[in-house]
Amino acid sequence: MIARTIAKSVFSEWLSLLRKSFRLIGPVRQGDQINFAPLAEGEGPDLSFQNTRLSPKEWVQPASERLFQFSLDPANTEAHILKEVPWDETPRLLLGVRPCDARALNLVRINFETPEYTDPWWKHGRDTMTLIGLGCNQPCSTCFCTSVGSGPFDPVGLDILLTDLGSAFLAQAATEKGAALLQGVPQGTEPSASDQSQAETLKKEAEQALPPQVAVDRLKDQPLLPLFNAPFWDEVQFACINCGTCTYLCPTCWCFDIQDEVSGTEGLRMRNWDSCMYPLFTLHGSGHNPRDQKLQRVRQRFMHKLKYYVDKYGNGVACVGCGRCVQFCPVNIDIRRVCNLMNAFQAN
């Protein structure tokens, strides 16, 4: 695939060019953190981060998304008819996304586009999004992408992968769409052999900075029920306060809740993020709650990512190793530790 070297001195010119075809979304500073937000005209991305606080999933699966609108006004001849909220057709470009997050946007497709059903909102959000990623020269100590089948320069899910060479970026196309974007770009030059070898070195160094910390090799063969009933869950769950930090910061947590909201006679059908940590998540209309204990909810999150998903799809764990939950769980429940407990478990 095509590759180009783009000097940092002309990087903003390249962005101006891209801006003609896309709405740009990139990392910007928000208080003590960096998150993805629309880049205003003339605003460049802030690439001084190791990882963004929130994952970019909200740009494909918004935390609150309007699906339908309706009227309850009896005078309205179309009262009680659900109408789709018009879709924003503007092509969008997610700039500076880390390989782990891009991989996550790819991974969750298995949930939203199945042979039986397609989630049109998610698909639309994903298909209108072009991804230009930024490889990780300096991964965090909490990163473990290399333990879950990925890496700091993994191009999976990306259209273009950027490698920061200091005074320039090496831009490597990973898809046809990415190749088309790099083709004939006036700011780009054919990468020199030294650009290529510098990128290779950076990749190797970053991978070496990420020694395997999490073992996943035995998860698939673990017998389900003994693992479900394993005694370690009691110890794992104790500290959990059942907040939604892990699920809302997680790039692969995809669960949602659909709600109707009405103001006066006008209504909206909304889709909001939901979390398996919340007791309400599984509360039945009857009042029965099959997961009314904290232990059951904590176990569900880890079993879903590291066992049920593994068994159902056979393509590894539903975790990309971004480390956000490790860093921001208020009570330090560490998925790396839990995964190792699950992997090493010996059923009697």
Binding site: N242, G244, T247, S275
Partner: peptide
């Protein structure tokens, strides 16, 4: 403005023990 409704503030609080 940054709130994501994760309820970490509430759930970390010893006062917030209401059953619902």
């Amino acid at each position: 403005a940054p709130c994501i409704r994760c309820y970490a503030c509430r759930n970390a609080c010893p006062l917030c023990y209401c059953p619902t």
